[in-house]
Design a binder for these strands. Structure first.
Lengths: 216, 216
DNA sequence: CAATGTGAACTGGTTCACAGCC
DNA sequence: GGCTGTGAACCAGTTCACATTG
């Protein structure tokens, strides 16, 4: 179905955002939505919405708009989030355990099926979600057995690369990296980095340099 | 000092990454580094490194490279992270408390000086860091008193906008938003969004659509 | 000679503007 | 009439290639 064209990564990001707004619109009882309204809600340009969707097909009705339910289904299909994906969290510190219990993950079909750490006092413990923390030595076996498709790194920077190598060895080929370092992986493995302090640095730069307009 | 040119946001993001790599290089005893080496470490193009730095001045020595210590200082100055910034966390759930104790924040000069929630059973409690959770009713006064410059939203989507309005009322003009929704704010307020599930959706899309190359 | 600094070329992404349809 | 779908125009950001300099 993808019209063999190169699709900007930003388009995929926006599709995810559209999807969530559509859920809210559905909840609020809307049956149809125009590109203008959806764009406004997602803080983008209406033409952007239409172009993004245009990469994948014709989902709207001219003169009317998009069917809220139908468009949602299409987007979920495009993103491949119309099914469950199994996650394994590595690093069960404060952040790791917050992620395991993160409601937005389960609500969107991301299921934490395993948790690993290498601190002896953590291994074997049960976390509120019911999961038992395993040693990273067991990572490979468990990941394969439970068919984990995405590894989540929530360790300090110092161990991130080691963890990544473990995940690669277990043939996970998608990693969500919360550690503040760029891990090195082969081509076949896909990585997304979420780096809090980089975001803060960007924010601080902007605060410090943007023309400070007087408050309305 | 900025050569009155428009600086890409991506450049700022990379400066933050360069900075952290420089810290590691310094720790490892390097005195100078070439754009090629730094680029390799940060997984970008060498010309990109030079261009990014070029927006702000000439920091290198031709034929030699960049002084690791000096370049760090310059970047920290550009990013305005050569001082402490006060944060207030709103929403002390699992994620919020993980953020409060997040070591990378304190290590980089971001100091959590206040925490707010509106759950009656949380208000007044002391968190391991020593902070006492306050009611959001006290947000305005506390934020002003403690000179908080950045608000961090770690609440569910449903209350994010309300929290943002509270922060705006307290004249915070930078927000780091961890809730999975786009908050609406006036021009004068700067926002960075960190949305875990969007990142996962992007990762899933890629896993599902990228040409799956056989593993080496 | 080796590596920076930078205009010019290129690539990618966004916005416009309007044709096409309901 | 109103809103989608999309080629064309535009804009931004990255990479190249080379002149420049310690």
């Amino acid at each position: 179905m993808p019209k063999t064209a190169k699709i900007p990564k930003a388009t995929i990001t926006r599709l995810s955002i559209y999807d969530r707004q559509l859920e809210l619109l559905e909840f609020d009882g809307y049956r149809v939505v125009s590109s203008e309204k959806l764009a406004w809600l997602c803080q983008v340009n209406p033409a952007q919405v239409r172009k993004d969707l245009g990469y994948f097909g014709e989902f709207g009705i001219r003169g009317v708009g998009y069917d809220v339910i139908d468009l949602q289904a299409r987007i979920k299909e495009i993103l491949a989030i119309n099914r469950t994906w199994n996650l394994a969290i590595v690093g069960v510190g404060k952040l790791g355990s917050a992620l395991i219990q993160h409601h937005n993950f389960s609500a969107r079909g991301f299921k934490c099926v395993a948790a690993f750490d290498n601190a002896p006092d953590k291994i074997g413990k049960r976390i509120p979600s019911g999961l038992i923390i395993q040693s990273v030595d067991q990572l490979k076996d468990t990941v394969r057995e439970l068919e984990v498709e995405i590894g989540v790194i929530a360790t300090p920077a110092s161990t991130a690369q080691m963890v990544a190598d473990f995940l690669l060895d277990a043939e996970v080929n998608a990693i969500l990296n919360f550690s503040p370092t760029r891990i090195g992986v082969p081509e076949c493995c896909l990585v997304e980095n979420i780096d809090f302090t980089v975001m803060l640095d960007v924010l601080v730069y902007k605060v410090h340099h943007e023309p400070k307009e007087p408050r309305a």
